[in-house]
């Protein structure tokens, strides 16, 4: 069984909501990424989404854009991201790792070559932001052939027909983007999110993660009440950026532990999600 499925099964048995942090590989510095991944697991992360930096991240807001630019400026590339995952795997055999990014770097490596190398490195799922259902026909089987779960996005604008088609292709979990806009956009309407998640759950049996707009323990708990997973990206990257000075890793990891630990605690206190709010 793929690590993602196994992890969500365990969480379900424990009636807990998954906490999924997103960090850009190589930010703020390439050598920080692997220790940071372990730090996030220790702070309560259940799945790690690792961003593959790309020069033209059209679905990302300024915070994640800048993180990607800085990572690329320090020589990050897809091969190094895969090497980081392999290094992480040496000490952590169970935490699922999902690569999140854009198609072009994967295409430059070659679809098949990438999938093979990703599996070998210990990657469990791949979310290609700019590959919607329409372009996924060949891509999904390639990923699945190498036991990589194809993770798909759903948006507030996704209608029931698109949700139904996503249910056919998606594996692992689906990522509901709770706001119109790019990553890091503002205000979150939790009632609306709860309604949308309920709608999605009527058609999709996979766990539903919610991202975009989750910044702290309070928003995490609010979303955790209706979702199977909360995904935190921009707020975490901002936290890293605030402690990005060289030789400041101790403070950085402390801040990350505080942010994620607070979310973890808030999620566990609200009793975990049943998911059955419909």
């Amino acid at each position: 069984m793929n690590r993602i499925d196994r992890r969500f099964l365990t969480l379900k048995e424990q009636q807990r909501t998954a906490l999924i942090p997103f960090v850009t590989a190589g930010f703020p510095r390439p050598e920080v990424t692997v220790p940071l991944m372990h730090c996030m697991v220790a702070a309560g992360a259940d799945v790690i989404e690792l961003g593959v930096p790309f020069s033209d991240p059209m679905a990302d807001g300024p915070v994640i854009q800048k993180a990607g630019e800085q990572a690329l400026a320090q020589g990050m590339d897809l091969a190094r991201v895969l090497a980081q995952v392999a290094e992480f795997r040496r000490d952590d055999a169970s935490t699922p790792v999902v690569l999140m990014g854009y198609m072009n770097p994967l295409e430059a490596m070659g679809h098949e070559v990438f999938a093979q190398r990703a599996q070998h490195a210990g990657v469990d799922g791949v979310l290609t932001v700019d590959v919607p259902l329409e372009e996924a026909q060949d891509w999904v089987p390639t990923l699945q052939h190498y036991d990589l779960q194809p993770i798909f996005l759903l948006a507030p604008t996704s209608n029931t027909e698109r949700i139904r088609r996503t249910a056919e292709l998606a594996r692992g979990y689906v990522y509901y983007v709770s706001l119109k806009g790019v990553t890091g956009s503002a205000v979150l309407n939790t009632t609306e999110v709860a309604e949308r998640v309920a709608l999605i759950k009527r058609q999709i049996t996979l766990p539903v993660g919610v991202g975009f707009g989750i910044r702290d323990a309070v928003s995490a708990a609010a979303i955790g009440a209706c979702a199977d997973a909360v995904i935190v990206g921009s707020a975490l990257i901002e936290c890293l950026a605030a402690h990005a000075q060289p030789h400041n890793e101790t403070n950085m990891f402390a801040a990350v532990t505080e942010l994620l630990g607070g979310m973890r605690q808030a999620l566990d206190q609200c009793g975990g999600n049943s998911g059955d709010i419909s």
């Binding site: 700019d130 948006a155 604008t157 698109r162 806009g181």
Partner: peptide, 19 residues
């Protein structure tokens, strides 16, 4: 779906697909 042989297509995030 906008394909010219292997080229073209609709490589955008789900957030844009309905538009």
């Amino acid at each position: 779906r906008g394909h010219f042989g292997p080229y073209g297509g609709q490589f955008v995030a789900e957030t844009l697909m309905v538009a």
